[in-house]
Computed example of a mutant assay.
Amino acid sequence: MEEQLSVLFVMVEVGGILAPIIFILFHTLRQFLFIPPILVCIAGGVLFGVTLGTIYSVIGLTINCLLFYAVIHRLPKTHRKLSTLKKRWFGEYRNLTLGQITVLRLIPVFHYHLLNFCLLEKRKSLREFGKSSFISNIPLAFFYTIFGQFISQFSMTMVVIIMFALAVLVYILREKITVIKWREFFKEAPE
């Protein structure tokens, strides 16, 4: 993974005026290289500074989400896997709110595209999904661009406190009402 990030640094240094475009494209390619979005956001802060790094990361992450929207409907096997994973992690009838998805994006252990899938189930149209993904990516890019250098210096107790605070925030932002259709509630159990 360090080799891939060092390739990004070299490409940006050589790219000159094309460096922001290369960085944004790297955000869309990072999923195929199995690089977490957090590391790319941290690299954006190092390469471009806080303001431009955050802006470029938000643009790259939003383009990544829009590509997910375009591709997920064409991959039924991946769609089923994400649906199964969502049911296992969050429950069959639980829908995450935009606030919960935004906070969960800040926690590194959550699958980025699983959260995109949860957002897609809530916001079906491209316009709503694009707007919601843009909004939910802003804290991720901002937090990890600014605090990326300091996070590695946190003690384990500080990390536990931050994760606990984020978990409480996810609970507070939960959807208060769950609607289960009559047929789904009384469906027969498979034998």
Rank of each mutant, 00 (worst) to 15 (best):
M1A: 13
E3Y: 11
E3L: 14
L8I: 00
V10N: 07
M11C: 11
E13W: 00
E13A: 03
E13H: 02
V14S: 07
I17K: 11
I17S: 12
L18F: 03
A19W: 00
L25E: 00
T28E: 00
L29K: 04
R30T: 01
F32W: 15
F32M: 13
I42M: 15
G44V: 00
G44P: 01
G45Y: 08
I55G: 02
Y56V: 09
V58W: 10
G60E: 02
G60I: 00
L61I: 09
L61Y: 06
L61D: 07
L61W: 08
L61V: 05
L61P: 09
N64I: 07
L67W: 08
A70F: 13
V71E: 02
V71S: 11
I72Q: 03
K77T: 13
H79G: 05
T84H: 14
L85R: 15
K86L: 03
K86E: 10
N95K: 13
N95M: 07
L96H: 06
I101R: 12
L106H: 11
I107C: 07
I107N: 02
H111L: 13
Y112E: 13
H113A: 14
C118D: 03
L119G: 14
K122I: 02
R123S: 11
S133T: 13
I138Y: 06
F150K: 09
S152W: 06
M158T: 00
M163F: 02
A167L: 03
V170D: 08
L173A: 10
L173M: 09
E175M: 04
K181E: 11
K181Y: 09
W182V: 03
E191W: 00
E191D: 11
